[in-house]
Design a protein around this nucleic acid. Structure first.
Length: 196
DNA sequence: CCCTGATTCGC
DNA sequence: GCGAATCAGG
């Protein structure tokens, strides 16, 4: 496969959207994530900042083959990164993107619907116990850390900082770990005593 | 271990 | 230009 205009365009689009190289590679097909990354660099859009200038790192006048350890790349651009991270006690003010830094897409659902928390009263006590059990061991992954093989069970209120995903290894195929599969997919059989 | 992007370098 | 191999990190 080669880099046709279309493919490059899709690459650009996805990269700008913040998709990972491997995801882009999957989408495109026929290329590896390395290929994607390589292309991204060649295209000069390694910096995902939308309106940013490409700060060309002035190459120091050094052409020798002096090997040694070129382990460190000088951080040329002093980025005014204003990450709001540390605070656990963020008010519920879901801040919209402040200044011109569109890089982060607010995917985090606002706090209204709060859907998948299954009401605990209709689940087999066993499964529940199991969940409470493993939820202590949960890896508490953030949204971005989820992969195809991490349990995507949400815990807590998305509007809060105390929100995470289980993150334990999933049961083959399923989107959840063993325990959460238990409460997510109840056999209809154990659904009986809903006298109504 | 899973993943990320970054770099290098033979092709 | 391309991308596998490798590196460096989370």
């Amino acid at each position: 496969m080669s880099w046709t205009d279309e493919r490059v365009e899709l690459l650009k689009k996805m990269w700008t959207e913040g998709q990972s190289a491997s995801q882009i590679a999957k989408e495109l097909g026929g290329v590896t994530r390395n290929a994607v990354i390589g292309k991204v660099h060649r295209l000069g859009l390694s910096n995902r900042s939308g309106g940013g200038q490409a700060a060309p790192a002035a190459a120091p006048a050094a052409t020798p083959k002096a090997e040694a350890k070129p382990k460190t790349a000088p951080k040329a651009a002093p980025e005014p990164v204003g990450d709001a991270a540390a605070g656990e006690d963020e008010p519920r003010t879901t801040s919209a993107a402040p200044q011109g830094l569109p890089s982060r897409k607010a995917i985090v659902p606002a706090g209204q619907p709060l859907p998948p928390q299954p009401s605990a009263n209709e689940i087999s006590p066993e499964a529940l116990a199991k969940v409470n059990e493993i939820e202590k061991k949960a890896k508490k992954l953030s949204l971005m850390e989820l992969t195809e093989r991490t349990c995507k069970w949400p815990v807590g209120d998305p509007a809060t900082e105390k929100f995470w995903f289980c993150g334990l290894p999933v049961q083959a195929g399923k989107p959840y770990c063993d325990a959460h599969v238990g409460v997510a997919f109840q056999p209809m059989s154990s659904r009986r005593d809903r006298r109504r």
